[in-house]
Design a protein around this nucleic acid. Structure first.
Length: 304
DNA sequence: TTCAATGTTTAGAC
DNA sequence: GGTCTAAACATTGA
């Protein structure tokens, strides 16, 4: 799934596009992808107005009228694509170049008939929201890990309360970061960075990038990090995430913005997805290993 | 045919 | 309880 920068990109765009719009109708193609897994989901959402769209960790929050919320988790391959009234192409009828990857997903025949490129819903559309101004929001997911929950205030507080520090907020101080590291000091540093209850929003891509930037091996036990290494990590994390937000995220697989465009962060990555390629910091090359079940990229010469 | 893929959760072993 | 691994969810592509 998208990590913090990708989710932030989607949230910012969506807030612009659907704020203050009323949800006229809701269609669910796979009830497995929504909670509650029944018509109650549709009944609950229909007729409400979108007040704002925001983010907590990797979760998208659509604040609805009547103190209700839509919580959306894209997991590995989820997408939220917005289509304006014209319905031609994606986003506002502007002729935006769409990647081959995305074309494939959009153009996939639903059942029998072939849809034109840009045709949504597609085979992978799990739910669709229609707004009163004629625009639409599609929730697509190739795999079926992602979900949309319709919840009340209480559940909203519970769901968002379990996350840790937001690395782009002013709460992400060096002291708070040290505390987070101390709490699970026996774990490997990459696992600490990816623990959503400690720091919210860092996933596999940006954990590898942060470790590389701070010259720290992902396998290092957290308690063995020097003060300088902790400080370097603390500086690297927001720096990398901010750049990635500016680039509208990393399209390593199926991630696209709400307009169906790919992010531009891929070319700025130093180690992720570069197994066997030349290191961007020394004459060596990027290595790969499995750590806690996740593919992990590093340079054994640059990282200690 | 086998393995890996932006995530999270859960079960089992020590 | 902590900590580790593997597996589960489902699908595609190399």
């Amino acid at each position: 799934m998208p990590e913090l920068p990708e989710v932030q990109t989607i949230v910012s765009e969506l807030d612009n596009k659907i704020k203050n719009k009323a949800i006229k109708s809701v269609e669910v193609f796979k009830f497995q992808s929504v909670r509650p897994m029944s018509k109650k989901f549709i009944q609950g959402v229909k007729g409400r107005k979108v007040l704002r769209v925001k983010r907590r960790a990797k979760m998208i929050i659509i604040e609805l009228s009547g103190k209700k919320y839509l919580l959306i988790h894209l997991k590995m391959t989820g997408q939220l694509v917005y289509q304006s009234k014209s319905g031609k192409g994606v986003s506002g009828g502007h002729p935006i170049p769409v990647s081959a990857k995305v074309k494939q997903i959009y153009a996939y025949p639903m059942s029998g008939g072939v849809k034109p490129v840009g045709g949504l819903p597609s085979k992978f559309t799990r739910a669709q929201f229609d707004f009163s101004d004629g625009s639409h929001l599609y929730f697509n997911d190739i795999r079926r890990f992602g979900w949309i929950k319709f919840v009340d205030e209480k559940s909203y507080q519970e769901e968002t309360g379990k996350y840790g520090l937001e690395p782009l907020s002013k709460d992400f101080t060096l002291t708070a970061f040290k505390e987070a590291i101390k709490r699970y000091s026996n774990r490997k540093i990459k696992q600490v960075l990816m623990d959503q209850s400690l720091i919210a929003g860092i996933g596999n891509i940006y954990a590898d990038e942060a470790d590389f930037a701070a010259h720290v091996m992902p396998t290092r036990q957290a308690k063995t990090l020097t003060a300088k290494e902790i400080s370097d990590l603390h500086k690297a994390i927001p720096r990398i995430l901010k750049l990635a937000v500016k680039m509208k995220g990393t399209s390593a697989d199926t991630y696209v913005t709400t307009s169906g465009e790919e992010g531009n962060m891929l070319k700025h990555l130093k180690v992720y997805g570069r197994k066997g390629e030349k290191c961007r910091g020394c004459p060596g090359d990027v290595h790969w290993m499995k750590l806690a079940g996740r593919g992990t990229h590093y340079c054994p010469l640059c990282q200690k």
